[in-house]
Design a protein around this nucleic acid. Structure first.
Length: 584
RNA sequence: GCGCUCGUAGCUCAGUUGGAUAGAGCAACGGCCUUCUAAGCCGUAGGUCGCAGGUUCAAGUCCUGCCGGGCGCGCCA
């Protein structure tokens, strides 16, 4: 309907340009918006205000010329000029409720469209280090990435969901060490656990598994393990040197091969756990991309940068000239000891992404990574890739409270609330929804006490309840022996005479547009707010007017409207990974 | 210090290519269940859109400066 009106106005503007009223080269594009205020009709356009200056006319005078030039259309009931020069259009009753037919015909497909035209998009999200279970801080990125992916798919993109597994590097070695140390403890050894080790309880079952697999073959006396290791931080030493020394010692004592087995055991145990957590949230990935698998590609990527002239040597290290691309400083890609940095892996990873041919790559990162954006953008540009193909979305971590107490979420200390705990207590639906009700880059307070004790106040229940209410009406209707197949004939729909009914229909007509905007802007919160508004309108309507009235045509009309609401709510909730229950 | 980001009701937040009288939830107060689910509805109250300039028919929205909060600034990952 909106497009149809925009076309009419466009024609009117064209007529005026050929008449020379509006200069052709300065004719602004026509914008039409659903009117905010009922008194302003159904749709409004500001075209006269925009074109007034180039035309050298007063906005209201121009508006009158435009209205006069408007082609006739039986969908338009009335046209008014208001305020400084807005053109307000009133739509005919039949056109207003056409949307009910569309929704019924398209059903679950209603709202889906082809903005993306099959272009491929990769969405990389979560990508938390597999050194421990996911905690509530990761949940937001997970829910956001999943909803963004689903939205993009709904508007016609081909979406590839990916998790980058940091299965190489020092942190994983420290995890393997932590598992082995717990194994030693379980074998009867006693010592002070390193300050920088992973102390969480989740390490214990992995250590027990290690004992089942390896028996006592990896057991060594604590005295041997710790002899000659630099002092730990609590003893006035350096915790980094201490832990590195221990990792080195472990490799020597049990051998590289056994250390690699411990490493893989820990990695797999935690990755399995992470996958289960995400699956419980209704989140699935197309690919779990291993950082280790990238090793051979790192040299290639660096050579490519070298060829493009973006690397140089200094102080024995190899640097990427990131400042060329607007970064604050140049960045090391190869240390003076010959090892490549994490950044070098990331360069190779991004090159790999683009070589896989994705039209667009979206990285969902924690907001603490924002200092990292410039160098990654710079690197892909230096590799000769159009940086416009990379979109980095920062997600602020939720600040977690228990009542007024702010909780720390350090994986290492083990004092965090896991995503699984959250799901057990708040439920999947509420958690998924809550995480995406706020703009991603907006800071978010997450009070566990509130989420747990007052979960009924969560807006997700409000929307689900609206859906369930429609189901309940249908149930009641069947119980009364009434035919639930309602007609959408004009003779029926003309009984929808209330302003509320018109508003609800107009709102549902906007759903595809909302979906498109939310997807293109990568902002699922637009959808959550829309659904809440629609549910609210329906709740008001439901309270004020009975659906199952005796009058047969009126009842059919109201049931038809309710069914459409049910459909739109269900479609929207599905994209957010939230159930649409039939009863509550 | 430099960079990014945010600042809207008591609290948590919407307000998206600049549009008409700035909105919701929670909290507060007052109503509505013999009628389709009260996880709901109706009403009241609550605002210098951080501050000051600027751009224009029009600024919460764009620009500049300042103030305040958060984050980042490793040959860590």
């Amino acid at each position: 309907m909106k497009d149809r009106i925009a076309e009419l106005l466009q024609k009117a503007v064209e007529t005026l340009t050929t008449e020379g009223v509006i200069p052709a080269e300065a004719a602004p594009t026509v914008e039409v918006e659903p009117a905010r205020d009922r008194n302003h009709g159904d749709f409004a356009s500001n075209i006269a205000l925009k074109a007034a200056k180039p035309a050298g006319m007063k906005p209201r005078d121009l508006a009158e010329r435009i209205v006069a030039a408007l082609p006739g259309d039986d969908a338009i009931r009335k046209v008014e000029i208001a305020g400084p020069g807005f053109i307000n259009l009133f739509v005919s009753h039949a056109s207003q409720f056409d949307i009910l037919r569309t929704i019924r015909e398209q059903g679950r497909e209603y709202g889906r469209q082809d903005l993306g035209q099959g272009k491929s998009v990769q969405v990389e999200f979560v990508s938390a280090n597999p050194t421990g279970p996911l905690h509530v801080g990761h949940g937001r990125g997970a829910a956001y990435g999943a909803s963004v992916s689903d939205l993009l798919e709904a508007v016609g993109y081909s979406v590839h969901r990916e998790y980058y597994v940091n299965d190489a590097g020092r942190q994983m070695s420290i995890l393997a060490l932590s598992v082995w140390l717990r194994y030693l403890e379980q074998g009867g050894e006693s010592f002070t656990f390193p300050a920088n080790g992973y102390r969480g309880d989740y390490v214990l079952p992995i250590a027990r598994q290690l004992r089942e697999d390896a028996g006592d073959s990896l057991q060594h006396p604590a005295a041997t393990v710790f002899s000659g290791i630099p002092a730990d931080e609590p003893e006035g030493g350096d915790k980094e040197a201490h832990i590195d020394g221990l990792v080195q010692r472990a490799r020597e004592l049990i051998g590289e091969e056994a250390f690699a087995r411990v490493f893989d055991l820990a990695l797999n145990a935690i990755l399995t756990d992470i996958k289960e957590d995400l699956a419980g949230f209704g989140i699935h990935f197309d690919e779990w991309f291993s950082e280790r698998s990238l090793r051979p590609d790192i040299e290639d990527a660096l050579q490519r940068l070298e060829r493009n002239g973006h690397l140089y040597q200094e102080n024995g290290a190899t640097w990427f000239r990131a400042t060329t691309f607007g970064d604050d400083k140049d960045r090391v890609v190869r240390r003076d000891n010959g090892e490549t940095t994490y950044f070098a892996s990331d360069i190779a990873y991004h090159l790999n992404k683009f070589e896989r041919g994705f039209d667009k790559v979206i990285n969902v990162w924690g907001a603490d990574h924002h200092g990292y954006m410039a160098r990654v953008r710079g690197a892909i540009e230096a590799l000769g890739v159009d940086p416009g193909r990379l979109d980095i979305q920062l997600v602020q971590f939720a600040i977690l409270y228990r009542g007024s107490e702010r909780l720390s979420m350090s994986t290492r200390s083990g004092s965090f609330v896991t995503l699984r705990e959250l799901r057990d207590e708040v439920g999947k639906d509420a958690a998924r929804f809550f995480y995406v009700t706020r703009k991603a880059e907006q800071h978010m307070d997450f009070d566990l006490e509130l989420a747990k004790s007052e979960s009924k106040d969560n807006p997700v229940y409000y929307i689900q309840y609206a859906h369930a209410r429609v189901c309940s009406v249908l149930e009641k209707m069947r119980a009364q022996g009434l035919d639930s197949s309602v007609s959408l004939e004009p003779a029926i729909l003309e009984h929808l005479e209330l302003e509320e009914e018109k508003d609800i229909a107009a709102m549902m007509a906007r759903y595809p547009e909302i979906l498109g905007k939310a997807a293109e802007a990568l902002e699922p919160h637009q959808l959550t707010h829309y659904l809440r508004d629609l549910a609210g309108q329906f709740h008001s309507y439901y309270n004020a007017h009975k659906v199952l009235v005796d009058d047969d045509p009126l009842r059919q009309a109201r049931v038809a409207l309710s069914l459409a609401v049910q459909q739109v709510l269900a479609n929207g909730l599905e994209l957010l990974g939230v159930n649409a229950p039939e009863s509550m």
